[in-house]
């Protein structure tokens, strides 16, 4: 990374332009993977990973502030717990049918987007947890690194 006088953070113009074009697509692709987790390969973990990668991509290209403006550290920590709690609540709601983790919603027809009962909901909860969790691991390591430089 070359430091010019203009106090520009992040990488070069080429990287920034490409990032601006692709980062939205990466995010969308992640969401697609999450929502179609029950009918095609992928699911909450893989999709969440891709969502997290889009934020990390943003951070690498534009510097820390740009990414943290969209998803701050405190918000990330809260969202992470919310994702985990959501998953637990879905599991506990299975008690209404008598069993923990019971798939209590109507299963629908196979290969439809709205099918498979609680599995898409679980996927969404996992995606929130994994995506935000991975992003906050990255933030924490970066902050640790920058604290040391000072």
């Amino acid at each position: 990374m070359i430091k010019n006088d203009k106090k520009e953070v992040g990488m070069t113009l080429i990287v920034k332009t490409i990032t601006r074009l692709t980062v939205g697509l990466i995010l969308l692709f992640g969401i697609y993977i999450v929502l179609h987790g029950h009918i095609s390969p992928g699911g909450g973990f893989a999709g969440g990973l891709i969502i997290a990668l889009s934020f990390i991509h943003l951070m690498l290209a534009f510097g820390r502030e740009a990414a943290l403006k969209r998803l701050s550290e405190a918000k990330a920590a809260i969202l992470e717990s919310v994702g985990a709690l959501l998953f637990l609540i879905i599991a506990v709601l299975g008690f209404t049918g008598g069993y923990f983790f019971l798939n209590f919603i109507n299963k629908g027809k196979p290969f439809n987007l709205f099918s498979a009962g609680i599995i898409p909901l679980c996927n969404i909860a996992i995606a929130i947890k994994v995506g935000v969790g991975l992003f906050s691991i990255f933030i924490v390591l970066v902050i640790l690194q920058e604290d040391r430089k000072e």
Binding site: F45, V130, I137, V140, L141, L144, Q145, R148
Partner: peptide, 19 residues
């Protein structure tokens, strides 16, 4: 997933140890 979390924890500890 487990491996990822352990790895992240180990890297974090390693950075702190370097401090």
């Amino acid at each position: 997933v487990i491996g990822l979390s352990v790895l992240a924890l180990l890297v974090g500890i390693a950075l702190r140890i370097f401090d």
